[in-house]
């Protein structure tokens, strides 16, 4: 079962793991686990019982509501429905002074963090504990990293040329990222966006760029800026991008 769980997680699947917490039945001891896939297929001991359909429909409700839950049945049977999904990734382009607290806070919040910079002294594992650190030119590094609806991207390189090349790679990918944010003064940001638009980056993707990055909380120090960026990403993750934009518009921030 352990191997199968890891196989599904590394493939990026979302599925339900139903664990028996308390059980009056010797044949179904506490701790036994059953996998319920999005297509309804079940693997594990609960699939062999009379409650198979009930378990499946509870798993579907958990998928729909994105809600993990503990349910109690007649006779003292308790089952925990967990939802396991692929990692929520944060890709940080630029390993400068904001990247350090941002990576650290993002780890605490549950992101899997990848940091890319072409300067090995900055993109150094000692600066980013528990993160994947890639010291390589931005373009070849970003070409290798897949972007999907579970990837958050933050572009905070040391200069607008590097910002532009990172964005060109990220926004040119086949799938949309969950979030793409770009740091910078409005002048620098406008310059980068105009340049990308001339290079043929899709307009809807440029419009969806979060820039200047972060919630408007008056952040100044690197740590404060990291909090403001992470606050915005948590909002996108939990409430969706529209609510994050609404917060920006409320105080007149953004393009």
């Amino acid at each position: 079962m352990q191997k199968r769980i890891n196989e599904l997680l590394s493939r990026g699947e979302t599925f339900c793991l139903a664990t028996v917490i308390e059980s009056p039945l010797a044949a179904l001891p506490s701790g036994s686990k059953t996998i319920i896939l999005r297509n309804g297929e079940m693997e594990g001991p609960l699939a062999e019982t009379d409650w198979k359909e009930e378990i499946r429909s509870q798993a579907f409700l958990a998928f729909r509501d994105r809600k993990k839950k503990l349910l109690e049945y007649h006779g003292g049977m308790k089952i925990f429905f967990d939802i396991l999904m692929s990692d929520i990734k944060l890709l940080i382009c630029g390993a400068g002074h904001i990247a350090v607290p941002l990576a650290r806070f993002a780890r605490d919040v549950g992101f899997y963090v990848i940091v890319v910079d072409d300067r090995p002294d900055f993109a150094h594992p000692s600066r980013f504990p528990e993160c994947e650190v890639i010291a390589e030119d931005f373009i070849p590094a970003l070409r290798r990293i897949p972007v999907s609806s579970t990837t958050f991207c933050v572009v905070i390189t040391r200069g607008h040329e590097h910002d532009a090349e990172c964005l060109q790679e990220i926004l040119g990918k086949k799938s949309d990222a969950a979030y793409v944010g770009l740091i910078g003064s409005s002048r620098r940001v406008r310059f980068v966006v105009e340049m990308l638009s001339r290079q043929g980056i899709r307009k809807d993707r440029l419009d969806n760029l979060f820039t200047p990055i972060g919630l408007p909380i008056g952040a100044e120090s690197p740590e404060e800026i990291a909090v403001s960026i992470l606050g915005e990403m948590v909002c996108v993750r939990k409430k969706g991008p529209e609510q994050a934009r609404l917060l920006r518009r409320a105080v007149g921030v953004g393009l």
Binding site: Q2, N6, L9, S86, G110, Y112
Partner: peptide, 12 residues
């Protein structure tokens, strides 16, 4: 830690 990291460590 993400769920994947927990379950990978468990298997390891």
């Amino acid at each position: 830690m993400t769920d994947r990291e927990i379950f990978e460590k468990l298997e390891e």
